[in-house]
Every structure is written in C-alpha cells, then in structure tokens.
C-alpha cells in the first residue's frame, strides 16, 4: 500500500521516464527524491514515479554521459547525490522532446476528435 497513490493515469509510459528526468533537471541539479517529487507535482500528480525504476534510470543516463552526479548536501541538510544535466544531456533532451512531440501529434491525428 502506498502513501501517495498516483491517480488513474498511473504508470509512466515506457521510455518516457528518461525524457521526464532530463526535463526536470533543466532547472538545475537535484537529487533523486526531489526529481521524483517534482515529476509528480509538475504533472499535477497525474504521473507517479515508480521509485524502484527512478534510480536505475538515473544511473543509465549517467553511464551515457547525459547526467553528471555528485554527492552534496540537500535542503534538509542531509547527504544526497545530485544529478546535473550535461551539455550532451541537453542535446539529447531537445532531440527526445522533438521526437515525443512528433509522435503525440501523429497519434493525435489518428485518434481525431473525441468519440463521445
């Protein structure tokens, strides 16, 4: 049982978590907990981040050189690992966002107006 059950929109679409992480970090470095919160909050709780998949995603992005991680001190005065967008990551974000927009547009075209 979860304390903050995400709303029915539920799970984040496969493959979009990377994009969301990258977008979240545009505003500046943050640590995992903040990233999760910020995704949920910004999506008005429409998207819940499965915490178990957030960290593997972060590490994968770091391995690819899109993020850079560094231990620091959080707003709560606790040790936390902060992730920062690299120049390479910014480029990827632009590309991925473009792809996403193209795709949603295309899907929108096919679905057309509401059926109801």
């Amino acid at each position: 049982m979860r304390s903050k059950k995400p709303s029915e929109a539920g799970e984040i679409l496969q493959g979009t978590l990377d994009l969301l992480i990258l977008r979240t970090l545009v505003t500046g470095p943050s640590h995992g907990h903040t990233i999760a919160q910020s995704i949920e909050r910004t999506s008005e709780n429409a998207l819940g981040v499965e915490q178990g998949s957030l960290y593997p995603a972060l590490h994968r992005l770091e391995d690819r050189g899109w993020l850079q991680a560094e231990w620091g001190v959080s707003e709560n005065n606790r040790r936390a690992k902060f992730y920062r967008l690299t120049a390479k990551g910014r480029k990827e974000l632009n590309a991925a966002a473009g792809r996403w927009r193209k795709m949603t547009h295309a899907i929108g075209l096919i679905l057309g107006e509401s059926f109801e």
């Binding site: 304390s3 640590h31 709560n76």
Partner: peptide
C-alpha cells in the same frame, strides 16, 4: 564501488521520504 554508492543513495532517498512523511 557503484553498488556501495547506490546503497548510500537509497539510504539518502529513504531519509528524505521520511522527512516528507
């Protein structure tokens, strides 16, 4: 080394979640 780092990161995450709760 990375595994150790991850363990600490998880601890850190849990601490922050606890703070929020």
């Amino acid at each position: 080394g990375k595994d150790q780092d991850f363990a600490e990161e998880i601890d850190s995450h849990l601490a922050h979640e606890r703070d929020a709760n």
